[in-house]
Amino acid sequence: MKDRAGWRLYLPLGLMLLFLLLPFYWMVLTSLKTRNELLNTPNPWWVFHPSINSFISLLTQTQYPQWFLNTLFVSVGATVLSIVVSFCAAFAIVRLKFRGARVLSTAIFFSYVVPPAILFIPLAAVLVKLHWFDKLWALIPIYATFLVPFCTWLLIGFLRSIPRELEEAALVDGASWPRIMIKVILPLSVPGLISATIFSFTLSWNEYLYALIYMFSSANKTISVGLTTELMRGDVFQWGQLMAGSLLGTLPVVLVYFFFVEYYVAGMSGALKD
């Protein structure tokens, strides 16, 4: 049922969305402006001589398509890994309640307080020992370090909201635990999994520091690293291309969100219910 929405809804909502969209409007303008127009314009809020040169040169003269694929690969990989690992852990903690489950769940939560911006040096030492340096796929387990705590927490919340009667019935019927996990709990967890997926995907998509520090080859750059390392030239930035790259890197994700946003809300809602 649709609400009758009056100005009391649309006015504050409009202002809020305006604020949230402002930098993106700016990105669009900048990506369409020539350097000259960017600096000399009678009205900064408009573009008088739009040109898509920035998009063309971004796609043809830089390795942007490669960076895009790298980002996609790492984000999908890190998301899948984190979701699988987190679901298993959450299932074990909530449904199995094995010895030490409570300790583990507390530990996972606390592990989130470790600030990544600082620990990259000690972490690098570990990566060197494992020979994971400058390997694109190594970012997958690295990203898992900050995804697993959050996803596990989210899924713990979600799994708790699934009624216990379901698995009790299955147990009585003689189903084994692994079977219950896959056949009973997993299908019911889909909304929770979707919201965890969206969350993980976004964080991986935007990660910067680890991708910058641990990858050396140009072929291993992600979108944000590639853009900032190759288009911010000393004191001359390629503004048009930077903003074009940023838009092209953001829009696909938003498009995905447009279709999944309801599941995301539903999933989070399930996780928060209890």
Partner: peptide, 14 residues
């Protein structure tokens, strides 16, 4: 390997 000039220190220090 190109990095922007202000990021050199981080990578080389590491």
């Amino acid at each position: 390997q190109d990095v922007s000039w202000t990021d050199i220190q981080a990578k080389s220090g590491l």
